[in-house]
């Protein structure tokens, strides 16, 4: 056929144009499709960070799995943390497929975690010293995660969008599990009520940080522009944080709890929540593995990884 050149003969620019056309039309990009290099790299970074955060996120709750105060709660939190590990597994597989052309594997993801090149979400660097924290993580951290993940449900990258669909469905159960723990405490003894309020106070700043800085001027860099350009997400960090306030501030207050920010109020004119900014320098420091529990949790992972080396060797020789 004359006049039609085959796809292999297309220039990079033509492929790029075609790619943009596809995502503009709402088409999904699949693992083996052509994609611009910065799209691939952005996805690898985003998805491996998300995946490893699910896995590191199991650690603050891990403390409370054996300690949960009833059989029902033990079963509930076991199921929840198992789901989180499952999310990690699902996401790392998506990331692995994207990394294949670069010759990288899961081993690289783990080594990048240990070396600090691969970061995990700020919230999972924090302490969870009471059962109240175990409830709060399910209620508000998973609640915040639902908001950021729902924002990417229509991501242009098909495998990620499909993984998120499954994850979000489970996150809803996690938030209900967390809310049930919090409700029991909030309606309980004075000691139990104090446990919840302490947890809210302890986690508030980390929850605001969870959505990321408003723009690059705060922390120097921000990936949000690239992810919006490539239709991986739609809303900005600040829009998501506002959605979180709208959803959760009334719920926190209705339980007779307070948020540790006296300036917090809804401004009718701007149609925005006004609040005290978290300390973004602290945020940068935390995700560089200088948070209160960063070293201990990475150490736990690293020790387990080293202790199990003989098992991985055995599996490799068996194959």
């Amino acid at each position: 056929m004359s006049g039609v050149i085959s796809y292999q003969e297309w220039t990079e620019e033509q492929k790029y144009e075609q790619f943009i056309k596809r995502i503009e039309a709402g088409e999904k990009i699949e693992a083996d499709d052509w994609m611009p290099e910065d799209y691939r790299l952005t996805l690898i970074k985003l998805i491996s960070m998300h995946g490893i955060s699910e896995i590191m996120g199991a650690l603050p709750e891990k403390e409370w799995v054996p300690k949960a105060p009833s059989l029902k709660r033990k079963l509930g939190i076991m199921a929840k943390v198992q789901d989180e590990m499952g999310h990690g597994q699902l996401l790392l597989r998506v990331a692995e497929d994207l990394m294949k052309p670069l010759g990288k594997t899961r081993e690289d993801i783990m080594q990048d975690l240990f070396s600090g090149r691969l970061k995990f979400h700020n919230v999972f660097h924090m302490e969870a010293p009471t059962w109240g924290d175990a409830g709060l993580i399910g209620w508000l951290v998973d609640g915040a995660a639902i908001i950021t993940q729902t924002n990417m449900l229509n991501a242009s990258y098909g495998p990620y969008a499909r993984a998120l669909k499954r994850i979000c469905a489970e996150e809803v159960f996690h938030a209900q599990h967390g809310e049930a723990i919090i409700m029991a405490l909030a309606e309980g003894t004075d000691e139990q009520r104090a446990m919840v309020q302490d947890a809210v106070n302890r986690w508030w700043e980390a929850l605001l940080m969870f959505f990321g800085p408003g723009d690059a001027t705060t922390t120097g860099t921000s990936k949000q522009d690239t992810t919006i350009k490539y239709k991986i997400r739609t809303k900005t960090n600040e829009e998501l944080r506002q959605d979180f306030f709208t959803k959760y501030i009334p719920r926190v207050l209705s339980l007779g709890l307070t948020v540790p920010d006296e300036t917090m109020q809804f401004d009718q004119q701007q149609n925005l929540w006004v609040y005290k900014q978290p300390d973004w320098n602290k945020f940068k420091d935390i995700i560089k593995n200088n948070g209160p529990k960063s070293k201990e949790r990475l150490g736990l992972r690293q020790t387990a990884y080293d202790t199990n080396e003989w098992v991985r060797d055995a599996l490799n020789t068996a194959n």
């Binding site: 199991a58 054996p66 943390v81 499952g86 790392l92 387990a304 199990n308």
Partner: peptide, 19 residues
Amino acid sequence: GSEWLGLAPHIEEDVAFSS
């Protein structure tokens, strides 16, 4: 078993063992 959570030889095993 619950003490093993997050410490199994690989992530797939963590999911299976915790189940």
